[in-house]
């Protein structure tokens, strides 16, 4: 299932929750774990100097420094690292999103694990000039599923047992469903297929009457059955639901209700990463709010 995992980390508290999940999965499923850290952003013009994101110092990146950072990461994650874990550590220089994608291109992992927003204190001046967050960019362009852990509550301790799959009936959702099925089967989980009906006037342009809402719910439920019903039968436990409201709120609520320990959704590639995360797509909103890890699938 997860033979190779790429764990992209800032090696700071911001990634701690993601780390717990990454190490947990790797240990549970004997995955090869690549711990990948982008230590700083180089300049545009010619310079050997890089501002280290952790120490905030201007440093010359050479072999010695890379080795030192490597050692630092090993120390930081010492409590997780033992001989039973197959792990490697890589350190790179560049824009985090780009370097994570480059690493993913090289390693072709089955899963990328990444922390959520690193918070303001980690912002370098570079951020102001590059649109979108690392997370958005990685999620958009990644060829493999991206697992995001944004909130402390979202990091699980045990194995997976409850998966919520959120669909919007798009093509990408098909792929996300395939993946969700794979996980559910491999790990013998319960699967809850969910669609949120967007009833905000912003979306429809007007207020919907209750009859219309219920009509649309019935339609969506039919659609879920038609699309996923047959295949869901391969699982021992599953359910299908359609709730109305603001989609991301409903998904988060639903996941809580189902005690989900994993949320799987399609990422809308059309959404340019330039959009502010607060205004961004449902997936971003769900990631920010969800009480469990979220896997975003794009390709």
């Amino acid at each position: 299932m997860f033979k190779k995992i790429l764990f992209a980390t800032s090696a700071t508290a911001a990634s701690d929750h993601a780390a717990r999940v990454a190490f947990n999965i790797a240990r549970s499923y004997q995955s090869a774990l690549n711990i990948f850290h982008v230590l700083g952003v180089p300049s545009r013009g010619y310079s050997q100097v890089v501002v280290d994101v952790k120490t905030k110092e201007r440093v010359d990146v050479d072999e010695d420094y890379l080795a030192w950072v490597n050692e630092d990461i090993k120390t930081y994650y010492a409590k997780y690292l033992d001989e039973r874990l197959h792990y490697t550590i890589d350190v790179a220089v560049g824009l985090p999103a780009r370097e994570i994608l480059r690493q993913a291109k090289k390693l072709t992992p089955d899963l990328i694990v990444i922390g959520g927003s690193t918070g303001d204190e980690d912002e370098t001046v570079y951020k102001k000039s590059s649109a979108g967050t690392t997370l958005q960019k990685v999620a958009k362009a990644s060829h493999c599923p991206v697992l995001v852990v944004n909130r402390p509550a979202a990091s699980f301790w045990g194995g997976l047992s409850n998966i919520v799959f959120g669909t919007d009936f798009s093509k990408t959702s098909e792929k996300a469903f395939d993946f969700a099925m794979k996980v559910a089967k491999a790990l013998d989980c319960e699967m809850h297929v969910f669609h949120a009906l967007d009833i905000s006037p912003l979306h429809g342009g007007r207020m919907l009457s209750q009859d219309e809402i219920e009509q649309q719910i019935r339609e969506a439920t039919r659609k879920i059955r038609a699309l996923y019903g047959a295949r869901l039968k391969e699982l021992s436990h599953y359910s299908m639901d359609v709730w109305e409201g603001i989609p991301y709120v409903e998904i988060v609520k639903y996941a809580r209700d189902k005690h989900a320990d994993l949320l799987i959704m399609a990422h809308h590639s059309r959404k340019l990463p330039s959009q502010d995360i607060r205004m961004g797509g449902n997936v971003e909103q769900v990631i920010v709010r969800a009480g469990c890890p979220v896997i975003s699938i794009n390709k």
Binding site: S43, R44, G45, S47, Y126, S129
Partner: peptide
């Protein structure tokens, strides 16, 4: 590139 960097 150089101006960009200097302004950064």
């Amino acid at each position: 590139h150089n101006c960009w960097d200097a302004i950064r």
